[in-house]
Simulated assay, not measured.
Amino acid sequence: MGRRVKWLTRRVDLGEIDAEIDKCRARGDVRYLNKLTAIRMLALGYERKPVLDAVRISERTLLRWVEQWNLGGFKGLKPGKGAGRPPKLSEEELKELDEDLAKSPRESGYDYDLWATKLVLFHVEKKFSVSYHKNSLYKLLRTIDSQNLPFF
């Protein structure tokens, strides 16, 4: 039998970890659940290989998770805010745009009966001082689940 892994330098309270695992299952947060499961298995004395197989990760990922646990405990394991460019429009502005698109273009001061892609792009730039490419506009409207998509 291989050697026992003794990587965890931070104390692991199995009761706390089990409670956190239950919360993850209820939320459907698989990523955080896998991290907690790996830490729990290591705390119980499992070797690396069974842990890697159970949560289907690489050894490098396991090492990173252990380091995150040792440095920050539960907070260290929780996923942070994703990287990337911040959105051009705030949540309130997106809601406002969706409300605008629910009205006819005439109600917003345009001489058209239907929202066309170019008109929506113009409206967004005029009202919010932000420009989008037409492909990005559709992605944007899908993120807010808009039922008010332009017709062409």
Score class of each variant (00 low, 15 high):
44 L>P: 04
10 R>K: 12
126 K>C: 09
35 K>I: 11
29 D>H: 07
80 G>N: 07
51 V>H: 04
32 Y>M: 09
27 R>H: 06
140 L>E: 10
83 A>R: 13
38 A>F: 06
38 A>D: 03
52 L>W: 05
106 R>T: 00
102 A>F: 07
149 L>D: 04
16 E>K: 13
96 E>M: 15
73 G>L: 05
146 S>P: 12
46 Y>Q: 14
120 V>H: 01
145 D>G: 09
63 L>R: 15
81 K>D: 12
133 H>G: 12
21 I>N: 08
54 A>K: 06
25 R>I: 14
129 S>I: 02
59 E>H: 13
90 S>T: 15
112 Y>F: 05
43 A>K: 03
65 W>I: 05
123 H>W: 02
36 L>T: 06
77 L>T: 13
107 E>F: 00
64 R>G: 01
99 E>V: 04
134 K>P: 15
150 P>Y: 03
90 S>Y: 08
62 L>E: 08
57 I>H: 05
48 R>P: 06
22 D>A: 15
30 V>L: 10
87 P>K: 05
53 D>A: 11
118 K>R: 14
61 T>V: 10
67 E>W: 07
72 G>K: 09
58 S>D: 06
25 R>Y: 07
8 L>Y: 05
101 L>P: 03
121 L>N: 09
29 D>Q: 02
117 T>E: 01
58 S>I: 03
108 S>Q: 12
57 I>F: 04
72 G>C: 01
23 K>A: 07
12 V>K: 04
95 K>M: 09
96 E>K: 08
6 K>A: 15
37 T>G: 08
81 K>R: 14
152 F>P: 07
14 L>I: 14
113 D>M: 02
99 E>S: 09
18 D>I: 10
39 I>F: 08
111 D>P: 06
71 L>D: 10
51 V>S: 02
62 L>Y: 00
21 I>C: 03
150 P>M: 02
14 L>M: 11
143 T>K: 13
93 E>Y: 06
142 R>V: 04
88 K>Q: 07
83 A>S: 14
145 D>L: 13
29 D>G: 05
104 S>W: 02
95 K>E: 15
24 C>M: 00
4 R>K: 15
36 L>W: 00
19 A>W: 08
73 G>D: 08
146 S>C: 12
107 E>P: 04
27 R>M: 07
79 P>E: 11
33 L>E: 09
88 K>D: 05
63 L>C: 13
107 E>K: 01
60 R>P: 05
145 D>E: 14
144 I>D: 04
137 L>F: 11
23 K>V: 11
100 D>K: 02
67 E>N: 13
53 D>L: 14
126 K>V: 12
33 L>W: 11
22 D>F: 01
143 T>W: 11
86 P>N: 06
9 T>C: 00
140 L>Y: 11
57 I>C: 15
131 S>N: 08
139 K>L: 12
10 R>M: 12
146 S>D: 09
121 L>I: 00
94 L>N: 02
86 P>C: 10
86 P>G: 04
19 A>S: 09
121 L>E: 07
104 S>H: 00
67 E>K: 15
148 N>S: 05
13 D>L: 13
85 R>T: 03
43 A>N: 04
88 K>R: 14
35 K>V: 12
130 V>S: 02
143 T>L: 12
146 S>Q: 07
101 L>V: 04
120 V>K: 02
44 L>G: 00
138 Y>D: 07
32 Y>L: 14
140 L>M: 14
44 L>K: 11
49 K>G: 04
24 C>L: 09
56 R>L: 14
47 E>R: 08
119 L>W: 05
